[in-house]
Design a protein around this nucleic acid. Sequence first.
DNA 1: ATCATAGTCGTCTGCCTGACGATAAACAGC
DNA 2: GCTGTTTATCGTCAGGCAGACGACTATGAT
Lengths: 248, 248
Amino acid sequence: MSPYDPSAYPPFAVTVDLVVLTVRRHALCALVVRRGEQPFQGRWALPGGFVRDEEDLAAAAARELSEETGLCAHDPAMPGAGNGAHLEQLATYGDPKRDPRMRVVSVAHLVLAPDLPAPRAGGDANSARWAPVDELLALGDEGSAGLAFDHAQILADGVERARSKIEYSSLATAFCPPEFTVGELRRVYEAVWGVALDPRNFHRKVTGTPGFLVPAGGTTTRQGGRPAQLFRAGGATLLNPPMLRPEV
Amino acid sequence: MSPYDPSAYPPFAVTVDLVVLTVRRHALCALVVRRGEQPFQGRWALPGGFVRDEEDLAAAAARELSEETGLCAHDPAMPGAGNGAHLEQLATYGDPKRDPRMRVVSVAHLVLAPDLPAPRAGGDANSARWAPVDELLALGDEGSAGLAFDHAQILADGVERARSKIEYSSLATAFCPPEFTVGELRRVYEAVWGVALDPRNFHRKVTGTPGFLVPAGGTTTRQGGRPAQLFRAGGATLLNPPMLRPEV
DNA sequence: ATCATAGTCGTCTGCCTGACGATAAACAGC
DNA sequence: GCTGTTTATCGTCAGGCAGACGACTATGAT
């Protein structure tokens, strides 16, 4: 290899792109913004922006998230950070032709958030909305309708990460408000996986997995029907045994 | 967000670093090279180098791998690429102070390879060796003995990725030669996880998981004892049921 | 011949899972 | 108040898989 030679490296632009997921009306939705300029003007894209000088990648992602949604990101490495959204690095995309103007390497991040009011259009993005990921992914990444750049691929990778990670971690609680019922958590799994789950078996599994849920003390009837116990997320991050996604 | 403004972005250097893992003498080992220059001169580091203009991230990782080891990387997205090593993107590290000279963002990749002859010292790296990961990680990432830069963290992340990924994928076969026995595969799991596994239960599991192994037709006694059947990796990439890592 | 080493096949028991019956506690409408 | 609807919660039962471990087989070493 050529060791580091500060005078002879090609310069890159480095950005962060965000796959912000939430569950709205029984559907997994992603945050997209409409591009106001070329290229891909008028097309939907994932929110994101340049990493600043002297700014860590996670900090850049958290800043962009805050600018777009007002959400306070919750770095899992720093526990006790309140009710912020979950943020983790997803993958990095660096195809030389992914941006037609210059060499841009984008470090994509995944954000999981509870259901939010309609996003505020922040800064230069002239509009933003929650779109069901099924619709976004059905558009494909080519043609005139799909997401800008390689964002369809990034979104697909983020959705797949979320789908697999809620199997063996307690990440599904990141889609819920601080206090939630077993039924609400079940509807999260159903929306993310796109399947129907048996409420009785789900209840047994989720309450029987140590550290997943701790009772919060009250009950609620906000979903109708019999009052349901409220829970908070327990301390466990890895579920044992895991929640298994049903077969094909 | 600030949309792309080609004239106003901070320039970054982008590198790839490689976590190259193999199993040697019942131990999980990583490839490290000795640094020939400042900073961290004389310390061990992960192999890596700058991403070139017009070069994809995966291509840069494959090129560095070839330069360091002569291995031909096998992109999992491109099947049928022969007996190359497994290569996948690991994570990206961009702390502003991770390189004391300039802003460097490093896209780390994970490589899993079968046991190889001693690495050839390629190019400017004045020496390279396989080191047991337990030794490397026990040094810590500070003080005068550990790996250079944040490479101890990168290595730890790569090892953890490998440990968890062989649970639910057929990746352990990437540590084996093209034809191998059940016992050899078991020793891979034992080395990567650092545990002892029951040979009888392991044999039942691994031969009962559809698509994991296909008989290659012959037998071998290279491990001593009774001749063992030879297998090749089957087509399956995801194992169902998974190989479960024993509890703590 | 005997031992040591490794591989392979079975058995048994306990746990987890999926399928599904039954009961409980709220609300809406009559 | 009664009835139907909705959701939550508990129980039961059969099947599958996993860990513990016994038994047997086929090679090379002494």
